[in-house]
Design a protein around this nucleic acid. Structure first.
Lengths: 232, 232
DNA sequence: TCCGGCTATTGACGTGAGTCAATTGTAGGC
DNA sequence: GCCTACAATTGACTCACGTCAATAGCCGGA
């Protein structure tokens, strides 16, 4: 993991692109680019934020851990996303830990500086508001998913959502290890595996990490997809 | 349900208190106070927001509904809270419906006006950021609660959290119908009832809607309370 | 006071999903 | 090429939790 001057980063900065040059400069004076290897932990739940992380490339997986050590994935920050701005804005300890699963690059902005700038500069505040609002809405969808649907509905709807995101109506590639997807969907990997097998009677074929959608209508019939729960 | 000029409302306005008089005026020109009876639906999931609601008195219960009509409570907006600013800020359809269970009063600010003011005025943006961040963090706690804990851990921790909130270490009054609490905790009313009975072997006594905490240590032992999941 | 309606409780039952464990598949290292 | 380590699958079993249904308790109104 290396440190470089902040302006080396060109991609993933579209979030800060609309900012005035003066404000960008103000932020970058207190920023550093951080390149991290797969497996790195960015921060642990319970810790106080010292930086506002912004994903430049790669991703950060955010997960919660129980006292006994069970872990569940809660969200994923992708290029252009702020990483848990809620903790930075409220000056409170992280409720989730962040881990990167692939080599990634982050812009680290000092928390105090970021907070102060957001409080004074409407353009940054606006970005922050939209980021927080988007993340909030994703969590609402997730809670509805967990409380209102069965395991197999969650899996089926997840595949349909992936197919939309990947713009391929009849073939989907799982974006992570099944392990992680299962925990994102609130079930064990074993249940996820079994559910996938079972759904092969309902319009899909599973081939390792790619899934062929044979009969989308049938899959939708058993999955009860819902635009107010599923993404896009 | 009646309409009154916006400045009739004194309480619950502490959220907007810190704003400059000019900004308060700007908002109140496009606002109206709305007094609603118990049972009123403020808006339905799927609808586009037309107002930013602010709770002046009473509360609004926000719940998600599946296509088949099953409902689950997701959060509660209390006096001083903005009601789902995330939908207003992003100009997107509500993901939850809002219903009031007790006579309540709301300040309704036209959505466009609120959005524009938040984009231009740092002081309002700041309030909005903190409100969104707080709501985000509550949902993170809820998701960890759902994914990491068993039913009885959720109930036990809920009672302990109530006891802290009500500042009474040995006596707690359930704030809503058990029906609602169960759905907030992600279980059926039957399971909630049974879980409460079972917990009577672990340090509590249930008397209708009040619960006596006989042995807090014992209750904590079976509930695995966690400051990164439970409120305060 | 009795009645009607609603909330809560309790029981019986079925099942979805977790746990534990054995096995298979697979990708990377030497 | 083979071997190791880890991911994934599958099976057997258990049990927590939901469902359905009957009963009990409670509150307000006439």
């Amino acid at each position: 993991m290396t440190h470089e001057p902040a302006d080396t980063a060109q991609q993933g900065l579209r979030l800060l692109g609309p900012l005035s040059p003066a404000l960008r400069k103000r932020l970058s004076r207190s920023s550093v680019v951080h390149s991290v290897a797969a497996g790195t932990v960015l921060f642990e739940q319970g810790a106080m934020p010292t930086f506002q992380h912004l994903v430049l490339a790669g991703s950060a997986h955010l997960f919660g851990r129980s006292r006994e050590g069970r872990e569940v994935m809660i969200e994923i920050a992708r290029p252009g996303d702020l990483v848990i701005p809620a903790a930075v804005a409220t000056r409170s300890p992280y409720l989730m830990s962040a881990r990167v699963l692939q080599p990634s690059r982050f812009l680290l902005i000092e928390a105090d500086v970021f907070r102060a700038a957001a409080a004074e500069e409407p353009e940054l505040a606006q970005i922050l508001v939209l980021s927080l609002a988007g993340q909030f809405r994703r969590l609402v969808r997730q809670i509805k998913n967990l409380k209102l649907r069965s395991s197999s509905e969650r899996v089926g709807s997840y595949i349909l959502a992936l197919s939309r995101a990947q713009k391929n109506p009849d073939r989907v590639v799982l974006p992570y290890e099944k392990n992680l997807i299962a925990s994102e969907l609130g079930m064990t990997r074993e249940s996820f595996s079994r559910t996938l097998s079972a759904l092969q009677d309902d319009g899909i074929v599973v081939q390792g990490d790619t899934i062929l959608i044979i009969d989308a209508a049938r899959l939708a019939a058993v999955s009860a997809p819902d635009p107010l729960i599923d993404l896009d």
